[in-house]
């Protein structure tokens, strides 16, 4: 195995993972806020440092991980994730507990991922979307738990027809997927409870 797969993990696994977790927890608890999360990992392309850090914080041998085709095609990224997290790869998106998506614009429909069951809605996929920015896309108005009145987020790129797909995801509550947006400036989250409105609406 090439050294690329071994280098670039957390320098301080205990404290780095805690810092990233708190950023994700705060982002999930307050959708629309951007929680800074420095470059704690240096994964091989196309995996981004922030998405890599989130993956190492949550994934281990208990969590089937789904990779989008761009990551699937990169042996280096696969080896890096395998070496540092030990996660098995999910055969289908419906088996995945986490999904790492390096190019969200080409993502398959959200309904393909595990939605959980009505009895166990927690058994659904958490998607980690690698976005390039959280402020330069289309403005999304967010409402729901964790947001006092309304919050604004403008992530880009997003999956196709994301607002419509998210409406359907929201309608499945308590089932549904949750999204972690990993951008260079930090982490933002969209739990399934968040309602999205576009600014024109």
């Amino acid at each position: 195995m090439e050294t690329q797969a071994i280098d670039g993990g957390f320098a301080n696994p205990v404290f780095d993972a805690q810092a990233v977790f708190r950023a994700v927890m705060d982002a999930m608890a307050r959708p629309g806020t951007i929680q800074p999360c420095g470059g704690l990992t240096v994964p091989p392309a196309p995996l981004s440092p922030v998405a890599g850090a989130v993956a190492l914080t949550f994934c281990d041998n208990d969590t089937p991980l789904w990779l989008d085709p761009a990551l699937q095609a990169s042996a280096a990224a696969k080896h890096w994730l395998g070496f540092h997290s030990g996660s098995p790869l999910a055969h289908t998106p419906a088996d995945a507990q986490f999904a790492l998506v390096s190019s969200p614009a080409e993502l398959i429909a959200l309904e393909n991922f595990a939605q959980g069951t009505q009895e166990y809605p927690d058994r659904s996929t958490t998607l980690i979307l690698q976005v390039t920015s959280l402020s330069s896309g289309e403005n999304l108005l967010l409402e729901g738990p964790g947001i006092e009145k309304a919050a604004m987020l403008a992530p880009t790129p997003l999956p196709r027809h994301f607002v419509e797909q998210w409406k359907q995801n929201r309608a499945r509550f308590p089932r549904g997927v949750d999204v972690i947006l990993a951008a260079p400036e930090g982490i933002a989250c969209l739990p399934r409870t968040t309602r999205i409105k576009t600014m024109e609406a």
């Binding site: 993972a17 927890m25 914080t57 281990d60 208990d62 927690d122 958490t126 399934r192």
Partner: peptide, 17 residues
């Protein structure tokens, strides 16, 4: 650390639901 990851995943889903 593995226990913490397991609990952290549960906390994250708890916040989402």
């Amino acid at each position: 650390e593995q226990t913490k990851r397991m609990i952290r995943r549960a906390i994250l889903k708890g916040i989402a639901i």
